[in-house]
């Protein structure tokens, strides 16, 4: 359960101030499926980064599972990210010199989980994401769809409660994009919260809850009955 209370994010560019988010109030329940849409520059990515605790609000409060995490230290935020949040990026962000399996293993390695425990978890994910033959391939030997599947496996390997995806299909062709979307939706059905930022109205419309943004504000917040 995530709650943003009167959150603003203001960037200073030279002597100018750019308000990327203005006075946002938002509640995200566990297991929700939310899409964020809006024109370029409306603040979608900024919102996602804030939700993912990668960025800090200029003002306002962030409550996570009832606790206020607004003033946690960087190290504490990193810990929360490690345990509760998974990111999926438009450009995949795989480490080029590591194999698919090693990329998936990375969050567990950073969290200090022993190798014996890591290997079976990676193996299971590789199997269930249909990457079996690709486990030892490096990112440049994989197709876009395969790369994004590796990235999704990496995002879920720590069993997060929230999955944040910023235009996850943006770099993929239509068919592959749909496959990746189906994968993400499957995860949501298993109980994870899914937030997708997208430009694609068709994709955005699939979410049970849809937010439209404009100029740093939430323009509309619609939910369709389950």
């Amino acid at each position: 359960m995530i709650e943003l209370q009167n959150v603003s994010r203001i960037f200073s560019v030279g002597d100018q101030e750019v308000a990327a988010l203005r006075d946002i109030n938002l509640k995200l329940g566990d297991g929700e499926y939310l899409s964020i849409m809006g024109p370029s520059g409306s603040g979608k990515s900024t919102m996602l980064n804030l939700l993912g605790l990668l960025d800090r609000a200029s003002s306002g409060n962030y409550l996570l599972d009832g606790g206020n995490v607004t003033d946690l230290s960087d190290a504490e935020l990193a810990r929360v990210r490690s345990e509760k949040i998974g990111f999926v990026f438009q450009s995949f962000h795989l480490v080029p010199r590591l194999t698919a399996a090693e990329n998936i293993e990375l969050p567990m390695m950073l969290a200090g989980i022993p190798a014996e425990e890591r290997k079976p978890r990676v193996a299971r994910l590789i199997e269930s994401y249909g990457l079996g033959a690709r486990a030892d391939h490096r990112p440049d030997q994989l197709s876009g769809g395969q790369r994004q599947r590796v990235a999704i496996a990496r995002a879920t390997v720590m069993n997060p409660t929230v999955l944040l995806a910023d235009e996850p299909t943006g770099n993929l062709d239509r068919t592959t994009g749909w496959e990746v979307l189906k994968l993400l939706e499957g995860l949501q059905e298993q109980g994870i919260s899914l937030v997708i930022v997208t430009h694609d109205a068709e994709i955005g419309a699939r979410a049970r809850r849809r937010i439209h943004m404009l100029d740093g504000r939430i323009l509309s917040d619609e939910s369709s009955g389950a």
Partner: peptide, 16 residues
Amino acid sequence: VKEIGLLKALGAPGRQ
């Protein structure tokens, strides 16, 4: 830089 950003997103604190 991107890799460092990624490690941070994946939960690595600055110290790490």
